[in-house]
Design a binder for these strands. Structure first.
Lengths: 198, 198
DNA sequence: CCCTTCACTTGACATTTGTCAATGGCCTAA
DNA sequence: TTAGGCCATTGACAAATGTCAAGTGAAGGG
């Protein structure tokens, strides 16, 4: 299950990972399997690990006082998941993270990553690029959520991340878009009658 | 005007900046003054510079087909401004950035920053920490915009960044919150009648 | 100093989205 | 196989927010 991670690092850093480095990486990450609905993180706990998903799908969400879930992230293979704020600041998380499908993860603590960054240049490069992309992606999403209607946000998500629609039920897609499942259902119905250009 | 920047770097990196480093920094950044309403960046242009604000205030916003402005960022002294996506990817920006008050900026290109990062460790540390904070801040804002009502978002902004309310007109605060000025005006009126606890 | 402009407010009304309740389909576990 | 649960859909209604228009007051430019 480490091959995915190796490939990911080589892609992101545009650098080959040597055998020794690969061994070091394998020693640094802790494999973990989660069954559907099992938690990686629960609200109130500190997020000790970032997780690279080698198989399966995960969601990160908060629960408000009325018991409504608000999904802030949906993740699949070759994505990272974890509450970055809690991980970095060591504060209790306001989020839950659980498996949507049976999943396989590679866990790593911040301490170990900091160490790896120094020992494996490709890792440092990868993380720098990830930070860059993460920031850009969250800027885009923020822009969408401020500027676009629910329908436009739905269409943009379809365009940007079509994979997600195959992997997550509509209820979760709706929550991720910040709307209710009913509203999403109605939007989809409307889009059927005015396909594409109209 | 470089003292602010020096202080910022020392704070963020928890590292003292030597005289030589300070000289290098002064040579690397290009001072620029903008009068109120002058543009730092216009939609369609590539964002060549990140700007450190030493004085004044700036806004970053997009304009939709109906001509409505959507503010994605409001910035004051000791903050950075620029379209990061365009700056990093060298793509045309969808944003405009202009001065809300007369402002003084220090501009730097990506090329020079990459170079500085290698020559001045404090700069590398500062940028790493900025990336971290930026990502955390945009995650928080995203969470707010998905999970909270307009009123709650307003209260949270007041709590997190009270400075902004002294510096920007309500119209801009409203746009930043993703609502119309009329709605913000009504929210404020309501809050007067049920102060704090009720 | 006057005039324009702009920000803020308010009212009436439209639109969007949420809430609640009911239904039917599909999958899964006993 | 069947019962229960989850998901998607739909309808009726409620709440939140947007739109348009008008009016007031304060600030800035000529």
């Amino acid at each position: 299950m480490f091959e995915n991670l190796k490939k990911y690092i080589e892609d992101y850093s545009s650098t080959a990972v040597s055998e020794e480095e690969y061994t070091l990486i394998q020693q640094s990450f802790k494999p973990k399997k989660l069954r559907k609905r099992q938690y990686l993180l629960q609200e109130g706990d500190v997020c000790k690990y970032m997780a690279f998903i080698t198989q399966g799908s995960m969601r990160q969400y908060s629960v408000d006082e009325s018991g409504n879930e608000h999904i802030v992230r949906l993740c699949i293979e070759n994505w990272w998941v974890g509450d970055y704020e809690s991980y970095v600041m060591l504060t209790p998380s306001k989020y839950n993270i659980d498996a949507v499908e049976d999943s396989e993860l590679l866990l790593v603590t911040n301490e170990i990553i900091q160490d790896l960054k120094m020992k494996v240049p490709a890792i440092a490069k990868t993380i720098a690029k990830m930070d860059e992309r993460n920031f850009i992606a969250s800027q885009r999403r923020l822009h969408a959520s401020i500027s676009l209607s629910a329908e436009e946000r739905y269409l943009e998500l379809q365009k940007s991340y079509p994979e997600l629609f195959q992997r997550f039920p509509q209820t979760m897609i709706a929550s991720y878009l910040g709307i209710t499942p009913e509203t999403l259902s109605r939007i989809r119905k409307q889009l059927l009658s005015k396909p594409k250009s109209a």
